[in-house]
């Protein structure tokens, strides 16, 4: 079972397919769950405290906006932890955790920098593309050791 970073990190489709074919998806929910379930200082809604943007300095310099660094504190560790990644490139309508274009650019870049299996594709726009989309993901996940 491989840890697969999903992009968009909030994707229902990717989260489902990675699990369906025997791997563990790494996405926003995992990082948020970790914060929501850790005692500390109260910082609703996401339990991201002002300390998190400081942790984000590991991936983005101090002149980078706090929101980017705060988001990077969610994604940075998972980018480091993952064994593979699936990226949907035209995810223009993923909000919230994926709401900042600058963070998204940086996350994608870091994923591409890492030497690991990576699949990049687009959301399907019709049935034929849907079949190709599913087949490509299934094939990718099988090749990295998932179930058939």
């Amino acid at each position: 079972m491989a840890k697969v970073f999903i992009y968009p990190a909030t994707s229902l489709i990717l989260s489902d397919m990675v699990t369906r074919f025997g791997h563990k998806p790494l996405g926003s929910a995992i990082a948020i769950r970790e914060r929501v379930q850790t005692p500390g200082l109260e910082s609703p809604p996401l339990q991201i405290t002002p300390e998190e943007p400081k942790k984000g300095l590991a991936w983005a310099a101090v002149e980078v906006p706090a929101g980017v660094r705060g988001r990077m504190s969610l994604y940075g560790p998972m980018v480091e932890e993952c064994d593979a990644a699936i990226i949907i490139n035209n995810a223009d309508l993923a909000f919230g955790c994926m709401g900042c274009a600058r963070t998204n650019e940086l996350v994608k870049f870091l994923l591409r920098q890492k030497e690991m299996p990576r699949l990049e594709l687009e959301y399907p726009k019709n049935e034929a593309e849907g079949v190709q989309f599913v087949a490509a993901i299934k094939k990718f996940l099988t090749e990295i050791g998932g179930k058939k």
Binding site: M17, P45, L93, F95, E127
Partner: peptide
């Protein structure tokens, strides 16, 4: 919450995924 709209978006694509899952079930990928 903002994330809801992301699910809303992907809901529109799910029929293609369902179809893809069915068509590729016994297919040489």
């Amino acid at each position: 919450r903002p994330g809801f709209h992301g699910i809303e978006f992907e809901m529109g694509i799910l029929p293609y995924i369902s179809n893809g899952l069915e068509k590729t079930e016994n297919l040489d990928l």
